[in-house]
């Protein structure tokens, strides 16, 4: 078995399994911790608040955009860019379809489209990360998990970019190795915010939705 076959095969399935199981364990664990029962008389619906809270925090309030714009643009550029690259780059579509979805496939973006998405993803991630070390607040509250998470994600993206010419198996293998490491790290780290955000937004939305307010 070649190195490439190993990182695309057994190691990938192992990492993927850890990613799914540990991730589910963590989310289910969070849900199982439950929620304190609130018996005060509600003014609004907690369930609707859960949903509304989730949408509310996608959109920053206008009074704050004056000083938040860089973070907002960086954050959206990175997250949307990464999502598009992840799901619509032709090699990714082929890989996912081949390795996980048993042949189910969907149309991929043309090459220029996914290059543009990658540009946005890189620009956003760099903005977010340099902000993390050049701002006293960010320096105080950032820990190793934040830095490793950012860097691992960056390296996964970078090695993916290195392999763009698709002419050397080793480049593809290195990208896949980084992906495997990233998948292993993900469920134990703050990268899990990708899945836990709906819980925190939802809880706040539910708590205050009962009071007739979505802060």
């Amino acid at each position: 078995m070649s190195f490439l076959e190993f990182v695309e095969g057994p190691l990938f399935y192992f990492s993927g399994t850890v990613f799914v199981l540990a991730g589910l364990w963590r989310i289910i664990g969070l849900i199982r911790l439950g929620r304190r029962k609130d018996i005060s008389e509600p003014k609004g619906s907690a369930a609707a608040g859960f949903i509304r809270g989730n949408f509310r925090h996608f959109f920053p309030r206008r009074v704050f955009t004056k000083w938040m714009w860089m973070h907002i643009l960086g954050g959206y550029a990175f997250h949307i860019g990464l999502l598009v690259v992840l799901l619509f780059a032709a090699p990714h579509v082929a890989f996912l379809s081949d390795r996980i979805l048993a042949g189910f496939s969907w149309p991929a973006l043309p090459r220029w489209g996914f290059i543009i998405a990658a540009e946005f993803a890189f620009a956003g991630l760099i903005v977010l990360w340099v902000r993390r070390f050049s701002n006293p607040v960010m320096r105080l509250i950032s820990d190793w998990d934040d830095h490793i998470g950012s860097w691992l994600t960056f390296i996964v993206m970078l090695t993916g970019m290195f392999a763009l010419q698709e002419s050397h198996d080793i480049l593809r293998a290195i990208h896949m190795l980084m992906v495997d490491i990233w998948l292993l790290y993900f469920p134990f780290s703050r990268l899990m915010h990708a899945f836990t955000f709906f819980l925190s937004r939802g809880h706040t939305g539910a708590t205050y939705g009962r009071k007739g307010m979505i802060p």
Binding site: R26, L33, M138, R190, M192, H193, T196, L199, S200, T204
Partner: peptide, 14 residues
């Protein structure tokens, strides 16, 4: 509880 835990889990230190 699950509410506070979800806060602690999802703070990305932004």
């Amino acid at each position: 509880d699950g509410e506070v835990a979800s806060f602690f889990e999802s703070c990305v230190h932004c």
